[in-house]
Computed example of a mutant assay.
Amino acid sequence: MAGLALLPLAAAQARADICAVDALDREVCLERPASRIAALSPGATELAFAAGAGDRVVAAVEYSDYPPEALKIPRVGSHGRLDLERLLALTPDLVIGWVTGNPAEQLERLEALGMAVFYIEPRNFDEISATIEQLARFADTREAGEAEAEQFRREMAALAERHAQAEPVSVFYQVWDQPLMTINDRHWIGQVIALCGGTNVFGELERLAPRLDEEALLAANPEVILAGGRGEDNRDWLAHWREYPSLTAVAQDNLFFVPPSLIQRPTPRLLEGASMVCEQLDRARARREGEQ
């Protein structure tokens, strides 16, 4: 009789054996591998594909444009305002939520309706790899996901090693224009700058993405200005800084464009963005040496 009494517990444990701890430090479990995934940020969509689960993604949000196959996925609003009716109609069995990007009340509503919501917020290189591995566990695509995660770890480490002895270069990274915003050293972009031998002129500020005024930037006088823009090939933000010819970055022509999707999404493509940043800082060093 005792053995029979343990059968329901054993069966429940067998059903709920696909578990991972999310960015809110909650254990999320599925009874079976996810087959219908809702990815509620462009980064979440990329990470799902990186985990080998792209063919399981049935819902995405605006600007989920990579890989190209992601463009075919039905949209359920924007990351900042979800179309819950549309999302529910697609019956996902796993929802990938973005801690600081999705409306908390909408994700809580999904949970109240019984959906499994796994919150992500990778803040560094290791957490990007770990998130890929977690999503691969949920989708039962571990081989593909672990291979992608390990390749990202290995190549980022190699890039760091190549620039370990690089001469410091002072850098300003512009994440937005109005209001003017940057990142601190705890942000993954700040970590990319450090990996490439750069010194973030606002790296010690407390906020992850602090607001500034132009006077603060002029006073910091960085040797390099990095910026994206509204779109993948919009260099208007850099053009603005040419109005200040006394800036060192302007005088030395160290105004460099970085496509936002390559560096402002915590996904494996950050490796491509980091490689570009390292090349740009190397160009700035070469120009400095050319003046000597």
Rank of each mutant, 00 (worst) to 15 (best):
L281K: 06
E204S: 12
G145Q: 07
H163Y: 05
V258A: 04
G101C: 04
A5I: 15
E150L: 11
L88Y: 09
Q280G: 00
M181T: 11
N184Y: 05
A144Y: 01
L270S: 10
A34F: 10
L82C: 06
Y66T: 03
A51L: 01
A139M: 01
R269A: 12
P33A: 04
L47C: 07
L226Q: 00
D253C: 05
W237M: 12
R242W: 06
I193F: 08
A158N: 08
A147D: 14
A147T: 04
E206Q: 13
V201K: 09
I128N: 13
A130D: 11
E150W: 08
R15V: 10
M115G: 08
A219M: 10
A139C: 07
V117N: 13
E108A: 15
G54R: 00
P74C: 11
A116T: 09
A44R: 00
A239E: 12
A158Y: 09
A147I: 12
A149I: 14
L84S: 08
E215N: 05
M181D: 03
E121Y: 14
L7N: 09
S275W: 13
A60G: 02
A147L: 15
A34V: 07
Q264F: 12
F152G: 11
G77A: 03
R36S: 07
R109W: 11
R26K: 10
F125W: 09
R162H: 06
A70H: 08
D126Q: 15
Q106S: 05
C196Q: 06
A284W: 02
I120P: 03
A274F: 13
L82D: 00
Q151C: 02
W98Y: 12
E206K: 13
P168I: 04
I73H: 03
G80I: 01
H163W: 05
C19W: 11
V192N: 04
V76W: 12
R109I: 06
A239S: 13
V28W: 04
S64A: 10
G80T: 14
I193N: 04
S78K: 08
D65H: 11
R32K: 15
E105S: 13
L6M: 05
V76C: 11
S41I: 07
F257H: 00
A157S: 14
V99D: 05
P68T: 08
R153A: 05
